[in-house]
Design a protein around this nucleic acid. Structure first.
Length: 589
RNA sequence: GCGCUUGUAGCUCAACUGGAUAGAGCAUCGGCCUUCUAAGCCGAGGGUUGCAGGUUCAAGUCCUGCCAAGCGCACCA
């Protein structure tokens, strides 16, 4: 069964609208109105604005319209009370039977069973996809947490989800990376060098070079050592432009050391960094189904295929010796180079080919999670896909704003090239995986967020994950205490005494439990995991208040049974929510 | 200069996508452990939702114009 209180009420209202006297030409089905949860219990459990929306259309006052609906609505046994309040809202108080039905439903299984909305529809979800030029840093962590939670949500709702990481293992950055490692390696072989500014500065480059040295000693240097007494060529002052100087250095390196050795170093480097990324993500509870190599797009001829296809469709033109894609014809603001005058494809070409390839596998929805720094890239990608004749309606590009890291009130830089960054693994090793994941998830994706390391490390209530986990642990504690007292927990007594649940806390908890499935669905539909964290905090808060207001374990068998049943469901829902976030739910804290 | 995102309590963030009295946590102040976990509870203070207009029964939310922050505007990736 799908628990959706708002939908239930909305259906009843829609049926009730037939009671209104309206002109024949008037189409009641076209009326847009909402059913919302109220902010205070005074306004009932849910309220609708239908009378307000109809007011102008029927030129009748909202009060009059609401009054004419009231009779039918009150007849429905779902409601204990229906009232008109304020400017014309209709407020609904749901009956105890409704809530008891929710509890019965949720008590049926050991875990919360989500409605099967996806029904096996296939989703391809790509996220993080950071360049393999260094370890993941704190900026990537947000994408990792966000994407992996989205994946969990969709899986829980019955979708067939494939998670994918696009590995940019081709192009100039890879050359610079290999060159950097080669430099450090030669350094280990005893050649004094001045390390180029434009090379990757991080200490991890030295570590990779050390691995190489441990494996090969100086075998990757000795063959050409006598031809190259100094590394100064790479700092050749006669070339003014830094990038040109770097490219000249790389070319010289390939020339002197041989392409074979260069490729060996390059392969080793990418493997080492990818391995680090994989294990960092795994420890952060992020797993992928696919690691898609950009290089494979070249070797498999996918880019050539897309190039030819665009050529055939006359979407490309030649200017200054390069092939340009006429992106402006498809909604982008500029035309884009597809194939350089040098004959090399651009990054865009590879990425378009990558996405074209995604569309060949029959996914019902294709989702990309982009960092906000790539937002300008979305229009050209869409343009390219449209030009290729693909339907982009089910292609979603989600933008995730940056997370700024603060330490001691100072913003911490996050440039991979400079080597000055806090890695994701450092972060979760300091703060904890649970707290890090949860903290990322509390913020809506388009919000620029500040992540204060000092605050997070305190493991205080600044990070509400403990608050939610504590609620769970407390409930577990109650049950173990109950068992220790010689009782044996059985939900039948509770199910027979649901009428005894009547306090304000109990009422509010039942309402929250009834909302849970809707919250999960809304989190997935609107790509907003923060709705789930917000919900869990509210539920935990309500439980903690409840906990302080009554004693659960008592000799009043019936009351005790009813309350423990309620708690068992609360803990079931918290466990479900935390596991969707891939956050642990310890039974003791 | 143009585009995207954001601006809400001292700080970090919500506000169910236009609803009724804008909510949490942290920080500050005052209470609550002889009883199931005090990582908790109860209470207090704290707001012209960046500014100015507009749209309507109703605006933090929508439209316009300013102001401020982040990001983007390559034959880089």
């Amino acid at each position: 069964m799908e628990l959706d209180m708002k939908k239930d009420v909305k259906n009843i209202i829609t049926a009730a609208l037939n009671e209104l006297e309206v002109p024949v030409s008037f189409d009641l089905k076209s009326v847009v109105f909402s059913v919302d949860y109220t902010k205070t219990r005074e306004h009932g459990d849910v309220a609708t604005n239908v009378a307000l929306k109809l007011s102008k259309l029927l030129s009748r006052s909202p009060q009059v319209i609401a009054s004419s609906l009231l009779g039918v609505l009150r007849e429905n046994s779902l409601f204990e009370k229906v009232e008109i309040k304020g400017p014309g809202f209709i407020n609904f108080f749901l009956s105890a039977d409704y809530y008891h039905g929710v509890l019965v439903e949720l008590s049926k299984n050991n875990n919360v069973i989500m409605p099967n909305i996806g029904d096996g529809k296939k989703i391809l979800l790509e996220y993080v996809s950071a360049n393999p030029t260094g370890p993941l840093h704190v900026g990537h962590g947000r994408g990792a947490a966000y994407g992996s939670v989205l994946a969990s949500l969709y899986i829980a709702l019955g979708y067939d989800v494939v998670s994918e990481y696009y590995l940019n293992d081709a192009g100039r950055q890879m050359d610079i990376l290999a060159f950097s490692v080669w430099f450090r390696y030669v350094e280990l072989c005893g050649v004094g060098v001045a390390y180029p500014d434009k090379c990757y500065q991080g200490a991890y480059i030295i570590d990779i070079a050390k691995d190489l040295y441990a494996e090969h000693v100086d075998a990757l240097y000795a063959p050409y050592a006598k031809n190259m007494p100094s590394m100064d060529f790479a700092l050749n002052d006669s070339i003014e432009d830094e990038d040109q100087r770097l490219d000249a250095g790389i070319a010289t390196c390939k020339d002197i050391a041989s392409v074979e050795i260069y490729n060996l170093i390059s392969r080793h480097t990418v493997n080492a960094i990818r391995g680090g990324i994989v294990s960092d993500l795994a420890a952060f509870r992020v797993e992928y189904d696919n690691w898609f190599s950009e290089k494979s797009l070249y070797s498999d001829g996918v880019i050539d295929k897309v190039f030819n296809s665009l050529l055939l469709k006359e979407c490309l033109y030649v200017k200054d010796g390069a092939y340009w894609f006429a992106a402006t014809n498809w909604g982008d603001e500029k035309d884009r180079v597809f194939k350089r005058s040098s004959g090399d494809y651009t990054y865009f070409a590879a990425d378009l080919a990558y996405h074209w390839q995604k569309f060949q596998h029959g996914y019902n929805r294709i989702i990309d999670v982009f960092g906000a720094d790539h937002h300008g890239y979305a229009p050209r990608l869409r343009a390219g896909l449209k030009a290729l004749g693909l339907d982009t309606n089910d292609f979603e590009i989600l933008l995730l704003q940056f997370a700024n890291l603060f330490r001691s009130g100072q913003k911490v830089s996050m440039s991979t090239r400079s080597g000055e960054f806090v890695t994701l693994s450092q972060l979760y090793n300091e703060v904890g995986v649970d707290a890090t994941r949860y903290f990322y998830s509390t913020c809506k994706p388009q919000q620029h967020m500040d992540f204060d390391l000092d605050v997070a490390k305190k493991k205080s209530m600044d990070n509400p994950v403990f608050y939610v986990q504590y609620a769970y642990a407390r409930i577990c504690g109650i049950f173990s205490k109950y068992e220790d007292s010689g009782f044996s927990w059985n939900q039948i007594v509770g199910l027979e005494n649901l009428d005894l649940l009547s306090t304000e806390h109990e009422q509010k908890i039942m309402l929250l439990l009834a909302k849970y499935e809707e919250v999960v669905v809304a989190s997935a539909d609107s790509y907003s995991p923060h709705l789930l964290t917000g919900y869990l905090q509210e539920l935990a808060s309500c439980f903690h208040s409840y906990y302080n207001s009554v004693t659960f374990i008592s000799n009043e068998t019936n009351m005790c049974g009813a309350r423990l049943l309620l708690l068992s469901i609360v803990s079931k829902v918290i466990r479900s929510g935390l596991s969707l976030l891939s956050v642990e739910y310890p039974e003791k804290m």
